[in-house]
Structures are given as structure tokens and as C-alpha cells.
Design a protein around this nucleic acid. Structure first.
Lengths: 341, 341
DNA sequence: AACGTGCGCTAAACTGATTTAGCAGAGCAT
DNA sequence: ATGCTCTGCTAAATCAGTTTAGCGCACGTT
């Protein structure tokens, strides 16, 4: 790979100057007293030879590789991860950096290995990402250099980027109130474990807080709250059936994520009820299925691309320690309407 | 990052030997006449200092970085990509390699930049992946070293890994025949563009070929073939409605992918028809939604993980030039049944 | 005693960049 | 003529490894 690449020495020779001169010119060093003509010759030579510096050689001296490690638990290869990586990739490119990506598969040994492999390659910093927004313990090895947590926090109070789930809870609830829903709003996706253990989820609690905040502001309470073991379609389906079996039918349901909402749609379809005329549905995440459902699901989007982007920016540019909360915009589709009566 | 790492010189000093000796011992070189005791001392010193070689320094001399470039069009960040990357990551790790991942966003300038950035880092080889199985033109820059195409072929006949779509077509059709379907099988997802232009898709034609092969072997033909502009749920929905409006209702439909099948389910639900009692459905891809649908969708799975894995294996180990076809196993769920009458 | 041989190990070159220290020559003042 | 400063450039060290060439010693042979 790249066997006959021209080296700096080649460029210097062709320009009739020393390596020193060539290096300084190509790096745009100020204060060297090299003549305009010398500059010309170096640039011309580099151009003609198609010179590209050898990053390994350079980094040996400078200890900079223009490479960022992107380590995640299992985020890198799931549908949820795409945006995170894409945003990070974009921001990295703008700063002339490149990403070394690994995922740990949730396996500590694998993680250890992966992190060492990246540190061996002298990465300039590490982005440590989690699939579910949660608190986690950062492997000590990566603390030797700059780190940014993505979609996660840690006891060490490292710089981190999180979605603003609480505000999303408010957004979603407000969208319902604006349409006239108030006293018959149900919730699907209460989950003790997710709400209690920050190492499992930070989103559950935050979203719930946002929802309740707006509701109590309007002097209302939830009509019903369905608990779910997990946030998968089957749980949403079961929860929705449960809700429909009660005397008072909700006018709207908030689902804790889109997969639950998908399940809810299935139950509604079977019951012969139509979204949104019979029941409105809102949700969180903006999973691809949200656009595929009929009618399209209104949902507060996890701003994955933005988050990935911010992580790189923080790592490379500012790096303050206060958590960065990225807003979750509401994608308005056709699943919300004014209640029938 | 990694500021106080021990160097080989440190290890050598501690072992009371030369760098040469330390290097040879740690690399397990045969034929050096270093004593067993010298071996001991070097290993002990390395262990005590937590020595890890600096990959940049090593690669400067050896021109090997144990790093593979994974370049894709937009595969890296979509739900379809996950498995490809995961498989590649796994196989790479087994060979002590690491992945530099980029996606080109379908933009030639970006691609040029990304590839150069990776070559600058002296990668040992390139895996060039496409999201849709198709033929593509490989950027000349990467031809300077080992390349494997993933989910793609090229006019240059480079080594490549592809899913065995034709066989999948046969698998899926056979599954239907086995249940007694024969003369009322419809197809959703014919698409002229995809079938004609290998630069758009190789899957469409191959799947169709497999389906027809089995059908004609059984002396049957398709009851109906619905054409779709693309393979999204909305197209599947429209196609299914079209099929249902005809005099003879199919006993089974084959959808060209799971998203179409999802749309088909929606149309069936609205029409009050049940899967699989009224109509059986089979499909291709094994998208996550296949498990979420009610009933679960039987589908020939794109073996993404296997494919990613094979690509690395071919790149690093054998590298024959004949295309590698990876089988697409049928995931049997509940969407196929014996036709009613 | 001189010579060849195998053993156990090391000095130094090399990879391709950056960076430090400093040299030669011109111009000017004393 | 001497010393000083400034200009324009370069030699050599450095980063952390790998690799080549070969050194000194003990032993056996003639």
C-alpha cells in the first residue's frame, strides 16, 4: 500500500533545498527566513511528485496522529449508532482527522484489547459512546488522554454529550396539550429498572420528569401509566391492549420510544381504532420506522448526528467539563389530532 | 495520550540487554541465539513496565500498520451496515488488526479525501463496501494495494464478497412450495431500474432469477408481479392493495425485501386479512422489523456479519480472485402457512 | 600455536518526518 | 580591518522501533 510514495527528502532534493527547508515551507511555518523563491520551488516539487506526508513518521516526532478513537459498547453497529458515527466522521473531517472505530460488544476483555490497540496507535483522544443514554464506568486506560463521553455520563464528571430528554418530554407533552388533550393522556413505557438505575438508562427518568412537569403545570395528571419490561414492540402492543381494556379510553398516548409506539399501532389496528382520529400517539427517538408507520409517527428525534459532531468538537476544540445537552426536535407527522369529543 | 509509555529502550535497559535483543525476544524471532535467561529477563522487564510497542514507530520501519481501511458509500451508518462492520471488526481483532472506518456519503470529493487520509496512515489494505449490492467503479487510488470489495463487484474483477441472492430466491420460493403454494404466488417489488442496471443493484435480478428458477422447475408461474418504484414500505403497501383489487387473490406473496413486506402487512391489516391464514408472506433481508411484525416475518437473511468477516479474511489471508458468495439463511417465523383451500 | 567455528550478543544504520542549533555571507558601523 | 547583526539556509539530533553486519569469546581441530 503506497509503496512508491515520494518522501520529504525527494521533495527537498527536487527543489534543491534541505529537508528542513521543505518541511518548514510545507508546514507554513512563520518566521523562517526562507525566500519567496524557495517557497515556490518547494511547492512546485511537492505538487509534481504528488507528495503526501507519512503520518506515522510525523506522529513519531510530534506525538499527534490526527486520529480519534471512537469506542462504543454496541452502538457502532446498530441502527441507533449510524448518526453518531456519521456526525463524528463529518466533524473529524472538517478538522482533518480520521476515526478509528471499535465496539466492545459489552465484553470487558474485548474492550481492554480494543482500547489498548487504539492507544498503541497513538490516537489523539477518545470518544467513548454508549448505545443507551446512561451513566457508566470509564475504563481507566483511556483516562491518560483527552476523552469525551457520548450519550453517557460518568462519576468522574468527564466532558460529555447527552440528548436533552427532559426537554423532549416537555416538547412531546406540550404538543398534545396544544391539540386539546389534557385529562385522557396515557403513558406507555414506565420501567422501574430504567428509571431507577442510571447505569441502565438516564432517558427514562428524564423523559418522565419532562412529561410530568408540563402536565402538572397544566393541572393535569396521567390517565394511566403502563409498565413495560423493555421498550420493544411486543411490550408496546401488550401495554396498549391493557389500556384499551379499561373503562376510560385514552385520547392520546405517549410512548417512551418508537418501538413501543409501533407495538401500540399494532394493537390499535387490531382493535379497529384509527390513529389519530380515535387516539393520538407521540413518542421519542425518531427511529426509521416512525416514517414507515401509517400514519407517520410524531416523535422527538434523538439528534444523533448533532451529538456525534459535538463530541468531536468538544474533544478537539473547547472541551469544557459541563455536560452538553443537545435538543431533541419534534418531528411532526400525522399521528396527533384534536380529540373527538 | 499515552505520555509516559515505556519504550523498547526502557525494557532493554531494565533487562540489561540491547534494544536489538529486546526486540528480537519480544517478536519471537527464530534463529537468534539469545539464551533462555535473556528471554526471561526481557519478558519480565516488559511485563513490569507494562511495555506496549509504538505502532507508528514500528510501521515506519516495517511498512505494516495492522490497520485496515473500511471505506463505504453510505453503508457505515445505516441499519444495514451494522453487521458488516461488526463482522469485520471481529475478524480483524482475531488477526490483531484494527479498522479505520470512513464513509464517502456518495460524494466523490469526500471519497477522494477520505481515501487519501487513510493511505497517509499507511493502512495495510482496503475494504470497499457498498450499501446496496451492486457493481461499482473503484477509485484508482486504492488500487495501489490490497483491496476487497464488500457487497459489490467491479469491472476489474477484484476479490469480492457478495450475498448469494439467487440462491436466496430459490430458498424463499421453495419454502412456499413446501407448504403447498404453487399457482397463486404473487411477487411484490419488480423494478426495471434495479433489474437492469448492475450499478444500481445486483440483488433484484439475482433474486428474481432464483424465484423463477424454482417456479419453472415446479411447472408454475407467478400469479402476478407488482412493480415498485423503490423498495420502501409505501411501495409495498400500494402494491399489495393493487394485488388485492384483482379477481384472484394470491395465496402467498414474495416481497423483494422486508420493507416492502412491512407495507404489504399494513395493506393486509387494513383489508382485514390475516397473515398467514389468509395470505402467506416471505421476504428478503431480515431487517429488524421482520421480528417486530405480527406475525413474525419469514425472510432470507442478509448475512452481514459473515460478509464483513469474510472480507477481512480474504484481505489478510487467502485473497483468491473468485467472488465469494455467502449464503442467505431463511429465518423461519410465522408468516408462512398452508393455503386455506 | 594458529586457525576455524559456533555462540551470545550489540553497535549502528534505517524508516520519514520535525526541530534545534548554528553556519556562511552580506551589509554596516566603528 | 574588525566586529556586529541580519538574512537565508542546512547539518544533525530526535522520535521508537527493526534489521543488518559483525564483534569477542570459548572450544575444537590440525
Amino acid at each position: 500500500m503506497g509503496r512508491n510514495r515520494a518522501t520529504l527528502a525527494d521533495v527537498a532534493r527536487r527543489a534543491g533545498l534541505s529537508k528542513t527547508a521543505a518541511s518548514m515551507v510545507l508546514n507554513g511555518r512563520e518566521g523562517t527566513r526562507l525566500s519567496a523563491e524557495a517557497h515556490q520551488r518547494v511547492f512546485a516539487a511537492a505538487e509534481e511528485l504528488g507528495y503526501r506526508p507519512n503520518v506515522a513518521a510525523r506522529s513519531l516526532r510530534t506525538r499527534k496522529t490526527a486520529t480519534i478513537a471512537f469506542v462504543s459498547d454496541i452502538v457502532a453497529t446498530t441502527r441507533f449508532a449510524g448518526g453518531l458515527i456519521r456526525g463524528a466522521l463529518d466533524a473529524a473531517r472538517e478538522r482533518d482527522h480520521v476515526l478509528l472505530i471499535t465496539e466492545t460488544q459489552g465484553d470487558a476483555a474485548f474492550e481492554q484489547y480494543a482500547i489498548e490497540a487504539m492507544l498503541d496507535r497513538q490516537v489523539d483522544g477518545v470518544i467513548y459512546a454508549a448505545m443507551a443514554t446512561r451513566r457508566l464506568a470509564v475504563p481507566p486506560a483511556i483516562l491518560s488522554g483527552p476523552v469525551v463521553l457520548l450519550n453517557a455520563t460518568s462519576p468522574e464528571a468527564l466532558p460529555c454529550v447527552l440528548p436533552d430528554d427532559e426537554r423532549a418530554g416537555r416538547t412531546v407533552t406540550t404538543a398534545l396539550l396544544e391539540q386539546g388533550h389534557r385529562d385522557r393522556i396515557a403513558l406507555i413505557g414506565r420501567a422501574r429498572l430504567k428509571e431507577r438505575d442510571p447505569e441502565v438508562s438516564l432517558a427514562a427518568q428524564a423523559r418522565l420528569r419532562g412529561i410530568r412537569d408540563i402536565l402538572s403545570g397544566a393541572g393535569a395528571t396521567l390517565l394511566a401509566e403502563a409498565f413495560c419490561g423493555d421498550w420493544l414492540p411486543e411490550h408496546g402492543y401488550a401495554a396498549m391492549r391493557g389500556l384499551l381494556s379499561k373503562p376510560t379510553r385514552p385520547s392520546a398516548v405517549i410512548c417512551m420510544n418508537d418501538r413501543l409506539a409501533f407495538g401500540a399501532y399494532q394493537a390499535l389496528g387490531e382493535a379497529g381504532l384509527a390513529v389519530p382520529t380515535d387516539i393520538s400517539v407521540v413518542s421519542f427517538d425518531d427511529d426509521p420506522i416512525a416514517t414507515w408507520l401509517r400514519p407517520g409517527l410524531s416523535t422527538a428525534a434523538l439528534p444523533h448526528e448533532q451529538m456525534g459532531r459535538r463530541a468531536v468538537e468538544i474533544l478537539l476544540d473547547d472541551r469544557g467539563t459541563e455536560p452538553v445537552l443537545v435538543p431533541m426536535p419534534l418531528r411532526r407527522r400525522r399521528s396527533i389530532a384534536t380529540p373527538a369529543s
